[in-house]
């Protein structure tokens, strides 16, 4: 026999080494998805944790069986002449291990479905939401505030503790709007607006980025979501209205050309770009009237 009875020790060494490496190198796992900072991310976090618990059960059962069987029934010089039994199967056992995954799947499917429906709605239905249009272009993020009439590029300020309805759209390639600490992503697509609810629990800066590949400078499509106390947010809007430049149609067109830009702020954006978000269905159009009355 080859000396591969030692196989299992090698396995343990591998796992041990990996654990060592991983704990050593990733000191802070509390970042991104595992560091939820708002109700949407929290719901997803809870679901992820629940699924990890369920999956751990499977992992433990299978790994234990695997190791025990390998050790117990490995070929050794002592069992040289051993003739394994001619077993066709075992109905009872097979029913058992069909039912275990069924139960686990049900245990995961139920919260999955309820959360799926929950995420379609405002995370805090009793609070007045605000709407922000988040638009991807090659390779920058443009944020428009239809009620306030202002525009920012590559950063977005939101009031903390207020549900934000991001209206997502793309000017060219399909991207995906993702702020891991506030909640999961949704695609941005040309001529097909979709929305995503997010909310920050407290003031802070959260990193967001485009998650779906869009070409050359895709890697640079990072933006920050800056949550501030609602009063500070209102002050900021006022300040932008007063001090930031207005954006002309030509400037907007130029912005859309492929390339990267830094942070930008505009006190207004061209009229025909204030497009009718409610045209495309999806309801939740309450901010529309404000838009019409406030922007003049």
């Amino acid at each position: 026999m080859e000396p591969f009875l030692k196989g299992r020790w090698k396995w343990l060494t591998v796992v041990g080494m990996l654990m060592f490496f991983l704990t050593g190198c990733s000191s802070n796992i509390k970042a991104g998805v595992l560091n939820p900072q708002g109700p949407v991310a929290q719901k997803q976090y809870d679901l992820i944790m629940w699924s990890i618990i369920l999956m751990s059960v499977i992992l433990v059962v299978v790994f234990t069986l695997f190791v025990v069987i390998l050790i117990k029934y490995r070929a050794r010089p002592e069992n040289e002449g051993y003739e394994p039994p001619d077993q066709e199967g075992n109905r009872l056992l097979e029913v058992v291990w069909t039912m275990i995954p069924v139960i686990i799947v049900i245990a995961l499917a139920v919260p999955t479905v309820t959360t799926t429906f929950d995420l379609e709605k405002s995370p805090s239905p009793d609070k007045e939401p605000i709407t922000i249009e988040a638009e991807s272009a090659q390779w920058k993020w443009i944020f428009k505030y239809p009620v306030q009439g202002i525009e920012t590029v590559n950063y977005v300020k939101i009031p903390a503790n207020v549900p934000v309805r991001f209206q997502l759209e793309s000017h060219d390639a399909m991207n995906s709007f993702w702020v891991p600490e506030l909640g999961g992503q949704e695609y941005t697509m040309a001529k097909m607006p979709m929305y995503l609810w997010l909310e920050a629990d407290k003031p802070g800066t959260y990193l967001g980025r485009g998650a779906n590949f869009t070409g050359r400078d895709f890697a640079k499509m990072e933006f920050t979501v800056e949550a501030e106390k609602p009063s500070d947010f209102d002050d900021w809007v006022k300040q932008v209205k007063e001090t930031a430049p207005a954006q002309s149609k030509e400037e907007f067109e130029k912005l859309l050309e492929p390339g990267t830009v830094g942070r930008m702020t505009f006190s207004s954006y061209p009229e025909d770009e204030k497009k009718d978000s409610s045209d495309h269905g999806h309801g939740h159009g309450s901010s529309k009237e404000h838009h019409e009355s406030n922007s003049h």
Partner: peptide, 18 residues
Amino acid sequence: VTGVMLASAPADYQYHNS
């Protein structure tokens, strides 16, 4: 098992494209 985790749509919002 990570496939099953990905199958959960709301959780996939966080895993997708990552």
